[in-house]
């Protein structure tokens, strides 16, 4: 069974590149450009994992995380934070994220994180 990954990222180029790469590695990728879209998608596709950018217009990453944790159906889905923020550890802790990957992204590291959380 193909595992669905929800990618919430406002930068279209990053979205496209990540989706391509993950698709080649056998994941099915659902894309959203902000937290609100991501929340709707999460509820409908029930992904195995969420890749979450933090700085986004509309609903931000932290707002998405707060909303997600209040929805019992999707509250348990692991979340990996993607950010260029220098204080990535603090940000991940604040959000009680399950994983974190620094931007620019080391793809192998990202892949390892995803596999560890979805297998």
């Amino acid at each position: 069974m193909t595992r669905i990954i929800l990618l919430i990222e406002d930068d279209a180029d990053i979205r496209e590149a990540l989706a391509d790469a993950l698709a080649e590695d056998g994941y099915q990728v659902a894309c959203a450009s902000n937290g609100a879209e991501g929340l709707a998608l999460a509820l409908s596709v029930r992904p195995a994992l969420v890749l979450l950018d933090l700085m986004m217009p509309g609903m931000s990453g932290s707002q998405f995380r707060a909303a997600q944790r209040m929805q019992p159906e999707i509250a348990a889905i692991p979340v990996v934070v993607l950010t260029a923020d220098g204080r990535i550890d603090d940000r991940a802790n604040e959000l009680q994220a399950d994983g974190k990957v620094r931007k620019p992204i080391d793809y192998e590291e990202l892949l390892a994180t995803i596999e560890a959380l979805t297998s």
């Binding site: 590149a17 391509d20 790469a21 260029a84 220098g86 992204i105 793809y107």
Partner: peptide
Amino acid sequence: GHELKTPLTALDLHLFT
């Protein structure tokens, strides 16, 4: 830093693919 890293991230990912 953040703004420069966003295109850099995309650039890097595309080079990877």
